[in-house]
Simulated assay, not measured.
Amino acid sequence: MASVREERAPWRLGRLRRRLRSPPLLLLPLLLLLRSSAQAAHIKKAEATTTTVAGSEAAEGQFDHYYHEAALGEALEAAAAAGPPGLARLFSIGSSVEGRPLWVLRLTAGLGPPPTATAAAAAGLDAAGPLLPGRPQVKLVGNMHGDETVSRQVLVYLARELASGYRRGDPRLVRLLNTTDVYLLPSLNPDGFERAREGDCGLGDSGPPGTSGRYNSRGRDLNRSFPDQFSTGKPPSLDEVPEVRALIDWIRKNKFVLSGNLHGGSVVASYPFDDSPKHVATGIYSKTSDDEVFRYLAKAYASNHPIMKTGEPHCPGDEDETFKDGITNGAHWYDVE
């Protein structure tokens, strides 16, 4: 995919609320695991692949194909099954324009067995399971732009590593999932993903609405369809973006203390805010009250990434673009209005 100024950063943190007592250090293993999974996404497993009667490769351990349509849900079910009972819950927060589910895999210890669909409906239970008091909720969202596809795969691989690592007793992962409530949403734009074609690089954006893999099926950029915190006018209508509406409704029902949004286009850890009151195109540092925390988390992630830490991603089209320490304030990079 071509790297253009319009592309949003591949990793954006959400707001960390100060009132929680859990220190950010407890969340760093998850961020560093994400970096490890991203590297794994580019490595084909060395062992010989196994083949079924139908001639398809076994999915376990393979990093050389994308999960299309129902295969995404099946891959997440398999990831959940890699862990012990009571560690994972797979549910949907809503549907895309074309009716594809917006899958979320929740991973944390002590969830217990999920109720049957009939029992859950009768009792009015949430498919995600009960909230666990004192355990910080963290979410990672991928594939907001349908043609930025690596994040969709990486989050599936991360889910598999978290679940299987907990089962095998990896001390770091056991501690993480015993103390943190993790939610992985691999694809917010499954319709766009199915339309995307390798090598398109957004060239279809000039066609009829909904033809580009970047946007949803109604031609809307999901990344620019959320209410603007600095706007004094009427909030935008969400009728054309059911994916955004579903995400907002889900966020409001929970108390996420940290969020990451994985994009393609450059190699940098970008932290809030993404815009400023003046909406100047670039160069305005728009900081939150938790600026030091976000800078710390962004730098911790970037410093463990072999390319990001150099601050020189050398992306096609922006070869001279640099980021000190591999991080940037979102609005200072460019304003997302």
Score class of each variant (00 low, 15 high):
Arg15Thr: 12
Gly210Val: 07
Ile251Asn: 12
Arg17Ala: 15
Ser95Asp: 15
Tyr183His: 07
Arg8Glu: 03
Thr288His: 11
Ser237Arg: 08
Leu238Phe: 14
Asn216Arg: 04
Glu57Leu: 11
Leu155Asp: 05
Gly112Tyr: 14
Val141Met: 14
Ser225Phe: 12
Gly169Pro: 07
Leu76Gln: 03
Val336Ala: 00
Gly264Cys: 05
Leu16Asp: 02
Leu32Met: 02
Thr51Cys: 07
Thr116Cys: 04
Glu69His: 04
Arg220Tyr: 05
Val280Phe: 11
Met308Gln: 14
Gln137Phe: 10
Thr322Ile: 01
Val53Ile: 05
Ala119Pro: 10
Ala128Ile: 06
Gly134Ser: 12
Glu337Met: 09
Met308Arg: 09
Gly169Met: 13
Trp250Leu: 05
Lys324Tyr: 08
Glu198His: 09
Leu222Pro: 00
Arg214Tyr: 10
Ser187Cys: 10
Asp170Met: 14
Tyr334Ile: 01
Ser231Asp: 13
Arg295Gln: 08
Gly14Ser: 13
Gly142His: 04
His65Arg: 11
Lys299Leu: 02
Pro113Arg: 10
Gly99Tyr: 03
Glu148Val: 11
Ser95Asn: 13
Asp320Cys: 00
Leu184Gln: 06
Tyr157Gln: 07
Gly202Asp: 08
Leu13Val: 00
Leu26Gly: 11
His42Asp: 04
Ala269Ser: 15
Asp64Phe: 03
Gly330Trp: 01
Asp170Ile: 06
Ser270Gln: 09
Tyr166Gly: 01
Val257Asn: 00
Met144His: 09
Leu184Lys: 00
Ala300Ile: 08
Arg15Val: 15
His263Lys: 12
Lys139Met: 13
Pro272Glu: 04
Arg195Asn: 03
Arg197Thr: 11
Pro114Asn: 06
Asn216Gly: 04
Arg160Lys: 10
Leu90Gln: 03
Ser259Tyr: 06
Leu131Lys: 13
Lys253Thr: 07
Asn261Trp: 04
Tyr67Ala: 05
Ala88Ile: 05
Leu107Trp: 01
Thr288Arg: 09
Leu131Ile: 12
Ile251Trp: 08
Leu102Phe: 08
Lys45Asp: 12
Asn189Cys: 15
Pro313Asp: 03
